[in-house]
Design a protein around this nucleic acid. Structure first.
Lengths: 195, 195
DNA sequence: CCCTGTTGTCAACGCTCGATGACAGGGTAA
DNA sequence: TTACCCTGTCATCGAGCGTTGACAACAGGG
């Protein structure tokens, strides 16, 4: 945490980091306070409640809205979505991938509505549109595979999976998402070829 | 809970139900005790610890060991694994799918090790073997997609996804897993044809 | 100067949690 | 009968949680 930032900023940065690293219920205000170098009471005082801190940490990830910019085709869209699973956060908050903050707390009731809305409007909708609105359910299906991959890798981190070079992991994920979106995986509608 | 069953049995049945419905950390021994109609102390006394109850609930609900019975080929193995996501519990414990118990608590640190071991030894290993040990990382990759689908559908339940007939959902999932396991998805090594 | 708001600390509250020690009934075997 | 385990209850413990009230330091404006 940079010492130059104000306490509130340090709290939010710490919250983003910790909420992306462990689920909502496992992240205590005392942990956040310790990481930000302030008192527990001030963490609560500055934001009002724990749920509000989480909400603001989620909103701070807002740049994900740009994902549908330029009305991309299916392959491009999937490529961008895969970025969320592999690219680090633009603010370079350590090793936090943007999607981690969504998946880590997906089981938490306070966060569920926000996350569900994000998946629906910011991801599934543009993804479905990029494939010609073929079948909106298919977009949700593909995204469920994506979030599973992100969660599984982050939580369990099976050695066998991590042994695969990241470029190959990404290739596998892209293929899986593309196949999920295309009813027939071998027709190469968008010039796509399975590996 | 049937009144004829012994206390220990009622506790385990309640634990299976509750652990599959909400994450480990949100499920208290007091909830389980109330559902089983016994005292909190006995829940702990009868099993030793909360983690042990969870472990036994896991073992009881998903007879995952049978999944590799008969040394099945890849397609059969994937078919059986999909059962975990769609079939109800054999004991007909309400609407609980076996995999729910695994995915609901996957984010909880206390349950993580237990679940990780389950995924590794009871699922990934036999799945990998069914495909000729080709690439153990690929099995973990496929399983991550599976758990993502189960979790996503259970937690968010997007209307567009639920609108797809269950048989079609299953077909999509099977295809996705098969494609994930096969480096080339169109060669039909096991007589498999994409939808 | 005083007044006021922001930033922050300290100590503590009430609550829920998992876990324990003491103990009671009831069946069984010696 | 006596001894013993299994089943089960009651009261309680210590720890961690989110939250709150009281208050200190410090700034800026009148």
């Amino acid at each position: 945490m940079p010492g130059q930032a104000t306490g509130k900023e340090r709290i939010l940065a710490s919250a983003m980091l910790l909420f992306a690293r462990m689920p909502y219920s496992d992240t205590s205000l005392r942990d956040i306070a310790a990481a930000a170098g302030v008192d527990v009471a001030y963490v609560h005082r500055a934001f009002g409640s724990k749920a509000e801190i989480f909400r603001q940490a989620l909103l701070a990830l807002a740049p994900l809205d740009d994902i549908a910019a330029g009305d991309p085709d299916g392959a491009t869209m999937i490529n961008r979505i895969c970025d969320l699973a592999f690219l680090r956060d633009p603010r370079k908050v350590e090793d936090v991938r943007p999607l981690h903050l969504l998946t880590q707390s997906s089981l938490c009731s306070e966060a569920r509505a926000i996350i569900a809305q994000f998946f629906g409007t910011s991801l599934a909708l543009p993804l479905s549109r990029a494939f010609g609105h073929a079948d909106p359910g298919r977009a949700h299906f593909a995204l469920s595979l994506l979030s599973g991959f992100v969660t599984h890798r982050a939580i369990f981190g099976p050695a066998d999976l991590l042994a695969i070079p990241e470029a190959d992991q990404r290739q596998m994920l892209q293929t899986a998402l593309m196949n999920a979106m295309l009813p027939g995986c071998s027709d190469g509608v968008f010039g796509w070829r399975p590996i």
